[in-house]
Structures are given as C-alpha cells and as structure tokens.
Design a protein around this nucleic acid. Sequence first.
DNA 1: TTGAAAGCGCTAACAG
DNA 2: CTGTTAGCGCTTTCAA
Lengths: 320, 320
Amino acid sequence: MSSKTVSNVVNDFVHVAPATREKVLRSIAELGYQPNVTARRLVTGRTGTLELAVSDVSLPYFAELARRISRIAASRGYRLLLEQTGSSIQAERAVLHNRESGLVDGLIFQPSLLGTEELAEYTVDTPVVLLGENAVPEAVDSVMIDNVSAAREATAHLLRLGRRRVAFVGHEAYGLSETSRQRIQGFREALTRIGIAPDPALEIAAPAISSQAAADAVGRALDAGLVVDAVFCRDDLSALGTLRALHERGHRVPEDVAVVGWDDVAMSAFMRPTLTTVRPDAEELARLALEMLEQRIAGQGGPGRHVLVGHTLVVRESAP
Amino acid sequence: MSSKTVSNVVNDFVHVAPATREKVLRSIAELGYQPNVTARRLVTGRTGTLELAVSDVSLPYFAELARRISRIAASRGYRLLLEQTGSSIQAERAVLHNRESGLVDGLIFQPSLLGTEELAEYTVDTPVVLLGENAVPEAVDSVMIDNVSAAREATAHLLRLGRRRVAFVGHEAYGLSETSRQRIQGFREALTRIGIAPDPALEIAAPAISSQAAADAVGRALDAGLVVDAVFCRDDLSALGTLRALHERGHRVPEDVAVVGWDDVAMSAFMRPTLTTVRPDAEELARLALEMLEQRIAGQGGPGRHVLVGHTLVVRESAP
DNA sequence: TTGAAAGCGCTAACAG
DNA sequence: CTGTTAGCGCTTTCAA
C-alpha cells in the first residue's frame, strides 16, 4: 500500500475502496499515526494559521477581541498565533516587515504607534486586515468604528446633561496615537458646536493606558485645582481610574461629575457607579475582519476595503 | 554560490568569509528573500512555536497570563499559539488528543474540566506543562499555587476580623472544578479550625465564571434572607459581582460585609472598595512554566515535577 | 482504484 | 571556507 492511499484516506478523498479505507483507518488507530502538519504545509503552501497582533492582550478590550477572533478562527478551521507589540514601534514594524514567509495565511493587526506612511509601505504578500483607528493606507483592508462621530456623540451626551466643564482623559502624553487624536477631535467638535471653546487645560494626558496612569493624572489635576463637571475617558480602563481619583477626593459621580468611558468591556457594567460608555460592535468587527481576511486568502484581489462597524452609547449610572 | 552558503549566512553560522556574507546579505535585501519557515521546520523538526491553552482568554486572569507567557516566549524566540477550550470538555480533550504532530514544540495547558484520570492518559510526545489547580498526574510537569492553604489563609483573615457568617461564592453549580473544590476545602478547614461547622447554605454557587453570574447568585441569596458578614469569592470577577449585589441592597463593604477575592487582577486595586484578594505569584508561575517546558523540549527526561509557587494576601479596603 | 516518482524549500553531513 | 548530495513527510502528477 502506498503512502498516497493513506494520504487519500486521511484527507477524506474519493476513490478509495471501502475495504482499503477500513484497513488504513485501523492501522492508523493501531500505530497512533498522526499526520505531520509541517510536511503538509510545505507541499500545500497553506498553514491553516492566522495571526493576531495587538499591543497587549491583557488590556480588556484586546482580551475580548482575542477571545472573539480566536473563536471565529477556530470555527473556520484556523489556528491563531498571538503576537504582542507592547509599546514598541519596532515591534509593530516587525509585525509587517520581519515576516518569515509561510508562517501564517493571514494577519489581523491593530497598530498603536505606526503611522499611515509606514503602514502603506507594507507590500508583502501575506493578506492583512488592519483594525483600530489608525488612519489606514488605501491599499489595505481595514475594519473600525467611526471614532470621531462616536466621540462627538458621547461628548454631546454629557453636554445634554447640562455639563459645561468637560474634560478629556487618558490620551498619550507623548506620541499621541491616532486613536486618541480622533477621539479628541470628536470631543472638541461637540464642544465647538454648542459654542464652547476647547480648553487645553481640560485635556488630561496619561503616561500609559492603564487605570493607574489615569487615576494619577486625574488626581494630580484635581489637586492642582482643576474643576470639572464631566469627564470623557479615552477608554474604560481610564474611566475606572478616573472614578477612583474622583471618589478619593470626595467628588460624587454622577452628581458632581459625570463620567463616560469607551469600549464597554465586561467590567463596565459592574463598576461603581456603572459606567456609561461607547460600545463598538465588537462582534461584528471581529466577524468582518475574519471574513475579509478569508476572502483575501482565497485569492480575492481588488483595492483595499475600509469598513465601518456600528457603535452605541450605553447609558448607565455614571452619566445617566 | 550554493544554497548552503546562503543558509549559513541566514542562520548566522560561522565559517563564512566576510566578503561572501556581505554579498549574500546584499542579494537577500535586493530580492526581498524571506526564508520559508515551514521548510526549515520540516528539516529541523523544531517549530519554534509554543501553545497556550486556556478556557477563555478574556477572563482577566487568563488575559494577564497570556500576556506574560507571550512575552516570555517571545523573549526566548518562540511564537505563541493560542487555544481556547471554552466550557467544553471535548475541547479540552482535543488539546491533548487530537494533536497533530509537529504543530508546536510544547504546550502550556490550564485544564478546567478534565480530571486527573483523563489527564494521566495523555502520553503523546509533545512536552507539556500543566497549570492551575486540577489534580495533576504524576508523570506530567505542573506549576500551581497551594490553593488549599491560600484559601485557608484568606478565610482566616476574615475570621480574624471577627466575622462569623462567612460565605463562599462563585463555584460551579454543576461539575465542581478542582480549582473550586480546593478553595472550598481550604475555606471549610479555616472555619473548622476555630470551631465553626461549615454550612452548605453559605456556599453560593454560580452558573458561570463571571461577575454577572456571581451578582445574580449573591443577590438571590440575599433576597431570600441570607445573612452574612463576610464573603470569600472564588475569583476577582465573582468578587466584583458580589460587591455590586451587596451595594444594590444597601450593604456596606467592609462595615457590614467584608469581601475577599482571588487572583489580584489589575482592576482589583480600582474596585470600590478596593479588593482584598489572594495574589498568586503569576510572574514566577509563567516563568517557571516556560523554563520547565524548555527543559523538556531540550530533551530532559525524568519524572514529572510539581512546583508550587508562592502567593500573598493583598489586604485592601474590602477586608482591611 | 492504487502505486511510483517527483518535489515543496530548507538544513545536515560530508567532501572538496 | 564553500559546494554537493540527500532527505525531512507529505501531496501531486502520472502511469499502471
């Protein structure tokens, strides 16, 4: 019996006599034979593996994203390789450039630091879908939500509550990310629309994306005499830190200060007070990213597609 | 020039004349040559990839674990494949049994549902390190903390505060996991030691590991008239839900009810009140798991090693 | 329906 | 120091 016949059986091909198939299957079970993935990859050229690259999987938004992508990938027969770029732009570059060929069939990448120009230089053959809010090169597929609009809506919600001293919290102190830039832009637009001039003193940067950094930054600002009646946070982690800083200084939320977050991660519904927050349609985002990636893997050509998924403002106690 | 020379240059081997190396490097850059990982794998037998299998990466503890393992793996030149088993015992079995050979060099696996017997049946050649608290077969390496002791200490802390009606919250209603079993055991031991008979009515199960499930379960128990002055939670997620259920019913923490969690995930220091919780030495756990795995990959034989890493009770506002 | 031969792209072993 | 040869384990092509 040739290895070809075995291969046919293993891959469930036609034209194998039932008796032969039976015999092969029995031998496989007896010998504990396991096909070697690597050899198969070498000859077929497909790895059956997708890569997800984000800055830090432990950030709740990315953790939830990874869960979704991993699930969908598994349901479609793909394995998932996880890559963390940390806060290193070199690591982000490496995701695109130091690409060993044949590692994965496709890449889902949320850049944090890389700008459009560098992203655009990317011309390797691995199919890519870009996530997040970094302005994205024309040629590459991307899925994101409309950050500027969502930020405008969230801010408008605070203004509608009658708040007039609204702060923005949690953007990077140095090297403003595109994400933060767009959210701040929407924030300012909402203010301008009702005739309030954006005040730089009300934009409180933090040295890192973490509750601690936000708590420290907000705490310092408050201690320095800053007066606010609302805070719009770059993300739910910053919101958590902001809630703490306010609480420790005796400010009541939402009575004295209303707070809005971004992402609607699982814990947002359990904070005290529960958090009003921008909820991106994360399930749809993950689904579309994988769908688009699979189409490219299947050989679909054409120009980059740039898809916007929806978002909603989930109103909870912190800004009712 | 032969492909061998190129291979030598690419792999940074000795015995290549500087001039030749130079020439090769230049050609590589010009042609945009990228070595094919798969072919290399086939011939070397090493994949340079490790697998991490947990039930759900979006659970904060696993998200933080994944961050650590991913980082350490990357620093040692490994890629990381992420596998989620969800709440399916079949998926956990598949992690061990449906193993295609040559996929990864090693596996770090935290089983949630699989018992020792099934784990022990595992006799494939891929090196494995088991994480978590499931009783682990003799033959397989494992890293965990001493759950029974840690649970005893946490409960003792509550008793030392003078609390006498201490509840346990968050274990599975059906199919008690080994993790929960051990934590409950330590919980009961601490009670027994000071002469309190464990009361089943004070062990409040939840249908899932989530804040919502815990909040619902605790809320129902409270509404049914349960009186407690302390709650020991299976994990920080349950603690978050417990805090909410208590707050919604007007119970003050820690004045009326003290609360202790488990894991010390990032958000624990920002809950309101901040959470007293059991902190496993997660960094050491991750480090050791990878170290042991690498030793096995390097061919080290010998019986299974079962390492305990340390833990501390981090005392914060919820149980001062 | 099954077998034999070729070859995916690389590295190990060895010879030059 | 550099080139040649063989072969990793599989699938593909082609012949029987």
